[in-house]
Amino acid sequence: MQTIADNHINYLRELEALTLEFGISEFIPHWQKDTALHKFIRYVADIMLEDGNSGKYKISFGDDPVHPKWTIPLEAALVTYGIQDEVEWEIPKVPPIETTRDGITYVNDAPELRDACYEYFQWMRLTQAYGDLLHRISDEVFFVMFTNRVVLQNLHKYLSFSVTESSMDYVEAEHPELVKFYTKSGRMRRTTIPMWARRAIFFRDRGLCTECKKDISGLLNPFSKENYDHIVPLAEGGLNDVTNLQLLCEGCNNEKSARLEPTSNRYQRWF
Rank of each mutant, 00 (worst) to 15 (best):
residue 204 R to V: 08
residue 145 M to T: 02
residue 99 T to M: 02
residue 208 L to A: 03
residue 35 T to L: 04
residue 126 L to C: 10
residue 156 H to A: 09
residue 247 L to K: 06
residue 140 E to A: 11
residue 231 I to V: 15
residue 121 F to L: 01
residue 247 L to E: 06
residue 5 A to V: 05
residue 30 H to M: 02
residue 158 Y to S: 01
residue 214 K to R: 12
residue 44 V to T: 09
residue 206 R to H: 09
residue 25 S to C: 09
residue 250 E to D: 14
residue 67 H to S: 12
residue 253 N to I: 00
residue 243 T to Q: 06
residue 271 F to G: 14
residue 201 I to G: 01
residue 237 G to L: 10
residue 192 T to D: 09
residue 26 E to S: 13
residue 66 V to C: 02
residue 229 D to C: 01
residue 19 T to E: 09
residue 129 A to F: 07
residue 259 R to M: 02
residue 39 K to V: 01
residue 203 F to W: 06
residue 8 H to M: 04
residue 72 I to L: 00
residue 197 A to D: 11
residue 132 D to W: 09
residue 132 D to G: 07
residue 6 D to Q: 11
residue 109 D to E: 12
residue 72 I to Q: 00
residue 244 N to V: 08
residue 132 D to Y: 07
residue 100 T to K: 14
residue 126 L to Q: 15
residue 107 V to F: 04
residue 48 M to C: 13
residue 98 E to A: 10
residue 199 R to Q: 13
residue 196 W to K: 08
residue 232 V to T: 14
residue 123 W to T: 07
residue 271 F to V: 13
residue 220 L to N: 14
residue 41 I to K: 09
residue 91 I to V: 15
residue 105 T to E: 06
residue 38 H to W: 05
residue 130 Y to F: 12
residue 223 F to G: 05
residue 173 A to S: 15
residue 148 N to K: 12
residue 3 T to E: 13
residue 95 P to A: 03
residue 144 V to H: 12
residue 24 I to F: 01
residue 137 I to N: 00
residue 204 R to G: 12
residue 218 G to L: 11
residue 168 M to T: 03
residue 158 Y to F: 15
residue 181 F to L: 00
residue 213 K to D: 14
residue 32 Q to K: 13
residue 222 P to W: 08
residue 90 E to I: 11
residue 256 K to F: 05
residue 148 N to D: 15
residue 135 H to Y: 00
residue 270 W to T: 11
